[in-house]
Structures are given as structure tokens and as C-alpha cells.
């Protein structure tokens, strides 16, 4: 406290002395009495000379590291964490309000093929690698705050080392299988006129109404384009930049790639929770369709009516069965 007082006092005296000096002396623009200019230049990220080959880049001080740290430790960790928790809570609420979405009619016992073997293998490769990547990735982001307090850092470092290696080796598999998946599913995910009805009725998610659609409804299409295509490829490509260091990318490239990778992945995981919920415990018959490739005719008629009619040899948009939501616009 005393020292602080002395420092303050000294600063006041110094300021007074300088002020007096300034009043006495003629105003001359002297060069700054410090290294502010040098500092500014150094922190602008200009390349400097280094005798040896620089290990990474040729800066004296890289200010981008501080920016990266603030993004990663700040919004990405905090907003990302709250977002995942929020989606989880929303799904729990949805489950409590809506319950499991059951078939309304009795199953007919007749099956229709919904997914081919290739499609199912691709889906499960993507799905399995996605889950592994999500778990290991979240471990790296949140483990320090959630797991280390529980088991200590030495034990956690085993988990994290395993997780990092799994993440690095499964990553390219995820990217490759995502490419295959995009190629396989893109055709049936293009916009179709009936999707407007789905948007207007919000998919019937809360009302329980069945909105007719072709093979994929607009909810599935949203997940496909935003999730699989945009986020999947974005996270995949930035992941490859991070996964193979020493191929020309400098530190700043990797910082940027990491910010995109982590934010994209967190949104991807948040969306995937909805997909995983509705594809497993949330809806009767949906898991079987991807497990076996076949759905019951009742399921097909209730959830994807046009596709069902088309599969049965009709023209798809033909008259719909009673009890289903009727498109308000005539087809």
C-alpha cells in the first residue's frame, strides 16, 4: 500500500516536472523517446530476418495468437457449451411434451426399401466417425473444465492423447465418407414444391400432423444441406489443414482453420443431436429404416406420402389418403 502511494506520488511529481519543462521549452516535434514505432511495426506481423531457418514463421511477436486465444477460450468455449446444453434441454422438453412419435395406423407388415446397402454403409461410416470425432473433439475443448477436476490431469492426459489420435485418424475417414454421402443423397434432397407446405406447417413437429413429402422432407433436407454438406465439408477441410502440419500452412492459417473448425463442429454437433434423437428414440420405425433399409408401408405412408405412392407405382402427388394433412395448394 505504502509502495503504491510512493509510486503514485512519484508519477504526480514526474508529471508536474514534465509539465513545467514543456511550458519552459519551445514546442519542438522531437522523435519519440521510446520504441513505440518499433513495437508497432513488430506487432503488424511483418517478416523479420532470422539467421537460421525459422521454425514456423518469421515474426518477432505474433499478435494473432492472442486473438486466437480470446476466440477459443471465450465465445467458442462458452457460447458453444451453452448451445449444446440448450439443444439438449430443448430435446428433453420436446420428448416430455410430445413423447415418442408413434405410428398412427397399424403396421401392415409389408416392407418398402428406403435405403440401399451402399447408402446404409455410407451413412453408418459417416455416423460412427462423426460420433467418435464429436466425443474426442468435445473432450479437447471441455475436458479441462469438466474431466480434469474429476480425475486429475495425468489420467486425463491418457484419455486426451487417445482422443487426439482417434480424432486425427478418423477425421480423414469422415471427410471421405461425407463426400460419398453428398454424392449419394444430393439428388433426393433438392427443393421440391411440397417442401413449402412442410415449412408452413413447421413439419407438424408440435401439432403431430403428418405433412406429405417425397423421399426426404424439408427437415431432412435442411440437415443434409446445412449439416452434411456445408458444415461437414467445412469442418472436414479445415480439419485436414489442422491434421497434417508441415505442408506449407503457417501458424495463422491453422489458427483461422481452428476457429472455423471448432465453431462449425459445435453447430454441427448441436444439429446432429436433433437428427440422432429423431432417428433413434424419438420416432418409431426410423432407426429400423437405416438399420435394415426397409420401412413398413404404414410408416412410409404417414411420413413420406408422395414417396410412398411413387414407390407403390403411383404418380406420387396423387390423391392422398384420409387422415393425412392435405396440401392446401392443388397438385
Amino acid at each position: 500500500m505504502c509502495a503504491h502511494l510512493i509510486v503514485t506520488l512519484r508519477a504526480v511529481l514526474l508529471a508536474a516536472a514534465l509539465g513545467l519543462g514543456w511550458m519552459a521549452a519551445p514546442a519542438v516535434a522531437a522523435p519519440p523517446d521510446n520504441n513505440a514505432d518499433v513495437y508497432r511495426a513488430v506487432r503488424e506481423g511483418t517478416a523479420q530476418s532470422i539467421t537460421f531457418t525459422a521454425p514456423a514463421d518469421r515474426m518477432l511477436i505474433q499478435s494473432e495468437g492472442q486473438t486466437w486465444r480470446q476466440w477459443r477460450n471465450g465465445p467458442i468455449t462458452q457460447i458453444g457449451g451453452w448451445m449444446l446444453a440448450g439443444v439438449f434441454v430443448a430435446l428433453v422438453l420436446f420428448r416430455l411434451v410430445r413423447g415418442k412419435i408413434m405410428l398412427e395406423g397399424p403396421p401392415t407388415g409389408r416392407l418398402i426399401q428406403r435405403f440401399s446397402t451402399v447408402e446404409r454403409m455410407t451413412h453408418w461410416t459417416v455416423a460412427l466417425s462423426f460420433v467418435l470425432l464429436a466425443i474426442t473433439g468435445l473432450t479437447l475443448l471441455f475436458g479441462k473444465h469438466v474431466v480434469i477436476p474429476l480425475i486429475g490431469y495425468s489420467a486425463f492426459s491418457w484419455i486426451a492423447a487417445l482422443g487426439k489420435n482417434v480424432h486425427n485418424f478418423v477425421g480423414p475417414l469422415f471427410f471421405a465418407s461425407t463426400l460419398v454421402m453428398v454424392a449419394l443423397f444430393a439428388r433426393d434432397n433438392v427443393w421440391q414444391a411440397i417442401d413449402a407446405l412442410w415449412i408452413r406447417k413447421a413439419g407438424g413437429l408440435l401439432s403431430g400432423e403428418h405433412v406429405p413429402s417425397w423421399r426426404f422432407n424439408f427437415g431432412e433436407k435442411t440437415w443434409f444441406w446445412i449439416g452434411v454438406v456445408i458444415l461437414g465439408l467445412l469442418v472436414g477441410i479445415t480439419g485436414l489443414v489442422l491434421d497434417f502440419p508441415g505442408n506449407g500452412q503457417i501458424r495463422q492459417d491453422m489458427q483461422l482453420a481452428h476457429i472455423i473448425h471448432t465453431s462449425g463442429a459445435l453447430i454441427f454437433i448441436a444439429l446432429s443431436l436433433g437428427h440422432i434423437y429423431i432417428g433413434s428414440v424419438g420416432m418409431e420405425g426410423s432407426l429400423e429404416s437405416m438399420k435394415t433399409g426397409y420401412v413398413d408401408e404404414t410408416w412410409a405412408r404417414e411420413h413420406h406420402e408422395y414417396w410412398y405412392r411413387e414407390a407403390k407405382g403411383g404418380s406420387g402427388a396423387a390423391p392422398v389418403a384420409p387422415g393425412s394433412a392435405r396440401p392446401s395448394t392443388a397438385h
Binding site: G65, Q66, A160, A161, G163, D243, P245, R251, H258
Partner: peptide, 29 residues
């Protein structure tokens, strides 16, 4: 012993102090 070679310290350090030998498979850190 606990380091997993993720490279985050290398991104964050203003002075380029942390460095990694490329000992892992495919030049991993």
C-alpha cells in the same frame, strides 16, 4: 508425459516458443 501434441500452445504463443518434433505418423506432432 502429459503433452498430447495438439499444437494449441504453438498457435497461442506470441514468441513462437513451443515447437514440436514431427515424430508422429504422417508427420504428426
Amino acid at each position: 508425459d502429459a503433452c498430447i501434441g495438439c499444437g494449441y500452445c504453438f498457435y497461442a504463443c506470441p514468441f513462437g516458443a513451443p515447437q514440436f518434433p514431427q515424430t508422429g505418423t504422417f508427420g504428426q506432432r
